[in-house]
Design a protein around this nucleic acid. Structure first.
Lengths: 229, 229
DNA sequence: CGTAGAGTTGACTTTTGTCAAAATCCGTGG
DNA sequence: CCACGGATTTTGACAAAAGTCAACTCTACG
């Protein structure tokens, strides 16, 4: 994949677009980049919105709490994605949290600066709007799946989409490490259930496991479970 | 509620904003208004995007098919709302369908015209972006509820939000008529289950039924079921 | 070693969905 | 005004899916 100096691929990186088109003063922005450790929380649901983040390198989960021990992972994001954009709108609090799944680099853009950029930069605003439109579609699709698809299908679906989004390593493993607990939260089910279903998928030869790594052996079979989706 | 010449309330009507600020040539737009009968489909999932609709008067359900006999109602919309905006983004097909729940009036804006308005009208684009941001939040909240809340809670939640969105009639009924089947689709469950749960809610004194009409007797109790949500 | 934490499994319960039958409502034509 | 057919509503019995709880195992790590 073609990558630019930021380490993300041009096609999907808002930051790259910003820089390459001189929409934002790239250097200043880059100075604001910082490191986030695995498991570290970038921002928390309910905390005040201070700005927008761009993932420069790494992966994050965006999640919403339900009870103390239950959360829903709303989205997985990697290099080039925006985080914290849900802080736009009228509320001043983030409706979700973001946690790093691996050591990551993000760059932070102050809300005021971001908004004034939006005010000035028509094209960027347009892209952002389109981005939201896409996210909304995604979200509604996921919602429907959650409502009508049995757990096995949801897991199959999740594996397929993760594979599509994050690609696979040289060894054929899906290039993201998600704990079982996280996979459960992502598919809206429990730890134990994820377990049993993963076993079933292994037994039927759809996937293979190696420690925490997952590889897809038979995408067709997974698609069968996932239905039209 | 303050209403303007279009019949919708200023606060939430995109069309009104457009007109009142001369963002769009109001008269031309109004000429395009037309009537939609109850049960009539405004646009269908998978059909080509031709434009955007504004609800001038009436209510619509926005839904997504799952199987022939299962659908998910993604959103309910009334006077002043936009429909078909999900047709923006890169795809050229609507990802959802919209069906009138009562005799309604909508006005249609051709996609080309709409997009060129967006290109020219900065403020409108900004509002639209914010609107999407809000919708996304809504959608994600609903997603989480769907995943973790038991059916009773989802129904309670649905009743509360319908009451908040559509208000109540003079007799105290929620001002929208949704068939049981639709309520089931809205809460991601089945006809029969909706039934039994509604009975429970009546028995415990939370709601009262009168034909298809529903009135909330004890909002606190419903909130209990719905939890923090 | 010993302990904490995650991974694994089994037994059991609860929730919800499915199917089918019975009851009720409603418009139509006799 | 009544009987009829079809649709919708209501109920019950049952099955399936998924969640809960508790125990047991394994591993990493001090």
């Amino acid at each position: 994949m073609k990558r630019n100096k930021h380490g993300c691929d041009l096609k999907s990186c808002f930051l790259c677009r910003l820089c390459s088109k001189d929409w934002l003063p790239a250097i200043d922005v880059h100075r604001q980049s910082f490191h986030v450790n695995k498991g570290e929380i970038l921002f928390t649901e309910g905390s005040e919105v201070t700005g927008i983040y761009f993932i420069y390198k790494g992966t994050f989960k965006v999640h919403k709490k339900w009870t103390d021990d239950k959360e829903m992972i709303v989205r997985l994001a990697k290099n080039g994605a925006i985080l914290g954009h849900r802080g736009l709108g009228n509320d001043i609090y983030y409706p979700v949290s973001a946690t790093a799944l691996e050591p990551s680099e993000v760059c932070f853009i102050d809300l005021g600066f971001f908004q004034s950029t939006l005010k000035v930069n028509y094209q960027f605003l347009y892209e952002l709007m389109m981005f939201f439109a896409g996210e909304l579609k995604e979200s509604e699709k996921k919602m429907r799946n959650l409502a009508h698809m049995p757990v096995k299908g949801r897991i199959a679906q999740a594996l397929l989409s993760m594979s599509a989004k994050f690609g696979t390593t040289a060894e054929g493993f899906i290039d993201i490490t998600l704990s079982r607990q996280d996979l459960a939260s992502y598919t809206g089910t429990t730890y134990e259930t994820v377990f049993r279903i993963m076993n079933e998928l292994v037994l039927e030869g759809s996937i293979a496991l190696s420690g925490k790594n997952i590889s897809i052996l038979n995408a067709d079979k997974l698609h069968e479970h996932a239905g039209s989706s």
